[in-house]
Design a binder for these strands. Structure first.
Lengths: 149, 149
DNA sequence: CTACATGCAAAGGATTTGCATATCT
DNA sequence: AGATATGCAAATCCTTTGCATGTAG
């Protein structure tokens, strides 16, 4: 069980590769945007990514961040994440199946990986007969509060 | 296990009661908005609720729908629903804990009630030690396709 | 060289806000 | 009567679009 994806910072070359494999041109802007998205905790909005990004490339525009994130989503490098609160879209660089911890106090959304839980769900739905629906992926939204510990 | 909430249409008096119990004034507008929200399938946007509502109260303004939905959410009569796609907020009159079936073909989001699944999750998290987080509600997002059957 | 990405500014859509008026309790 | 909700319009926020210019492949 882990609360976050691993944050081994990818080298510039690895970032370039990920874009190339996805069929996207590796521009300075996209490299920076992808890098920031990977290192930002939680599920940042375009605005939050932009704030991080301008530290490295000062006149990178917010419009470009929107366009880049859209292309990332289109090729499957990034996901749009469901969020009930707040009115901005949120993005997640982690495309592997995972669950979410949603803190009602801080509005934070944290990734949550738990293979035991995955197995439990797979087994449950293998037996559960759901006429009219063929399930294949599960994502659990766990609402609660962060506590000391 | 049920795919939808029951849609027994509440009487005007029941609607009034629900608002009163929630500590909200029962105005004609709110009664209509709540009624429409309950009878609309899926998870409508404020705009969709408004379209339904003006059929009954022609000059009820969209602003009022927003304000009413906000009050409903504040007192727990209604939920804001997480959605990754689209840029409008969606609302759900069903505040009982429930799960969602997301069809990748039609983009539909259907409510899904399953008390066995609820129990399974409660039991799992009662045993699972999650340092730093106090979980209380679970909502499973089940992605898949509608099939004949 | 050529297709595609960027930056900027303007447009568009969704939501919120302010305030005078109307309504519920 | 007094507190609160409504309607309308303006303001604000978030996101998309158009187009001239720059750059990767």
């Amino acid at each position: 069980m882990t609360f976050h994806s691993d944050h081994t910072p990818p080298t510039p070359g690895q970032l370039r590769d990920r874009l190339a494999k996805a069929g996207l041109r590796a521009t300075r802007q996209r490299l920076t945007i992808l890098e920031c998205l990977l290192q930002l905790p939680g599920h940042p909005t375009a605005e939050q990514v932009h704030r991080q990004v301008v530290a490295q490339v000062p006149n990178l525009s917010l419009g470009t961040v929107y366009k880049a994130l859209d292309s990332f989503v289109e090729v499957g490098l990034t996901r749009r994440v469901a969020s009930a609160e707040g009115s901005s879209r949120r993005y997640d660089a982690d495309c592997s199946a995972h669950h979410h911890l949603i803190c009602t106090d801080t509005q934070e959304i944290m990734d949550f990986h738990d293979s035991q839980l995955d197995t439990l769900l797979q087994e449950f739905f293998a037996q559960r007969n759901m006429p009219g629906f063929q399930a294949h992926t599960f994502s659990l939204h766990i609402t609660g509060e962060k506590v000391a510990g």
